[in-house]
Amino acid sequence: MTSADTDGKVRLPVARRAALVPLSVTINGDRRQLAVPPNRTLLELLRYDLDLFGTKQGCDKGDCGACTVRLDGAPILSCLTLALECEGKCVLTVEGLPGGAELHPLLDSFDRTGAAQCGFCTPGFLMTSWALLDETPRPTRDEIRQAIAGNLCRCTGYKAIVDAIELAAKMLRGEEPRLIGLPGSANLPPPIGTLPTGATAKDKDKRTAPGAGSSASQSASQLANQSANQPEEPKP
């Protein structure tokens, strides 16, 4: 083995690096002022610079969809998007999908149907289907299959994913109850220092994509609060 010494050795010039360029971009609702090299992809920016590891790398050249994020609402491949091309734009990643008490119906439905097995492709599917449901509240199964055709999954055979997206669409339209049998929903501790509902709704709006239905999200939060407030009862 050979280690590189720092002393007494003539070094080749540094691998040529371009100067950093300022970048202003909104990520999951937070405006960020950054400086990046021009050869930084959005995927690298998210994972390496911002530690937003939810966005995955599956091929790094646009063949698999694992790195899908939303750029100004549209699902795009972050591995084929230069970070600098996002100047002034809004990026949403899986970390931006509402969780907790306002759990997004997609997260709920993916667990219901088993639409994630290993979970590695899932953030990409969530981003693609989040955009789909914002644009098409009542998608047919064929429209769903078409929309996710750029996201490869190796575990499920896709059926459970199509089922989940269909189910989430129904939840968003209020046609299907949410948070049914959600693990832990019966066991959630009572909220500590509970925020007034108004504050929660505002938080949510900040994180929701333009055009996302908000009335449904509201009902999710109500449901979650209800179950959260129920003390666990030992069943006699």
Partner: peptide
Amino acid sequence: IERHGDVLRRLGVVRY
């Protein structure tokens, strides 16, 4: 159990 039950943990939270 008519749900998977362990998917939520994986959705962008699990560290691979």
